[in-house]
Computed example of a mutant assay.
Amino acid sequence: MDASDLRIALVSGNYNYVRDGANQALNRLVAYLLRQGAEVRIYSPTVEQPAFEPTGELVSLPSIAAPGRKEYRVPLGLPAKVRRDMDAFAPNILHIASPDISSHRAVTWARRRQIPAIASVHTRFETYLTYYHLELLEPAVRALLRRLYRRCDGLLVPAESTAAVLRAQRMNRNIAIWARGVDREQFNPERRDMDFRRSLGVADDELLVAFLGRIVMEKGLDVFADTIDELARRKVRHRVIVIGEGPARPWFEERLPSGIFVGHQEGPELARALASADVFLNPSVTETFGNVTLEAMACSLPVVAAEATGATNLVRDGHTGVLAEPGDFQAFADALQSYASDPDLRRRHGEAGLEFAITQSWDHINSAVVRTYFRAIERRARLARIKG
Rank of each mutant, 00 (worst) to 15 (best):
A271K: 02
E53V: 12
A298T: 08
V304Q: 02
A384S: 14
A324L: 13
L155H: 09
M194N: 11
R180A: 09
G21H: 04
R105H: 14
A311G: 04
A110G: 01
H264V: 00
S60A: 15
R111S: 13
R375M: 03
V279I: 13
R19H: 13
N188E: 03
A119N: 12
P50Q: 12
Y149N: 05
L323E: 06
A298F: 02
Y131L: 08
V47Q: 05
L33I: 05
T372V: 13
D2W: 04
G244L: 10
S338A: 15
I115H: 02
R375G: 03
D317H: 14
E287T: 01
L354Y: 14
G263R: 08
T309K: 00
A368E: 11
L345W: 08
R69Y: 15
R180N: 11
R385H: 13
F356N: 03
A163R: 11
A232W: 02
D334H: 12
K81Q: 15
V18W: 06
R113F: 07
L78P: 09
I118E: 06
E378P: 05
R198I: 05
I8E: 00
A275L: 05
I243C: 05
F196M: 12
P45V: 09
E230W: 03
I8M: 14
V47S: 08
L137H: 06
P189Y: 04
D342N: 15
G37Q: 07
G327D: 07
A273M: 01
V369E: 03
G388S: 13
P116W: 06
Q114W: 06
V285W: 00
R371C: 03
V304G: 01
A179H: 07
H349S: 04
R379Y: 01
Q186D: 03
V202A: 10
M217Y: 08
I177G: 00
A88P: 00
E185P: 00
W178V: 05
I243S: 02
R173N: 14
G290S: 15
N92E: 04
P54K: 08
R35V: 12
I175D: 07
A22M: 05
T108C: 06
G13L: 10
G201W: 08
L10N: 05
P50M: 11
A333K: 06
P116K: 05
D334S: 13
P139S: 12
D153W: 10
D334V: 12
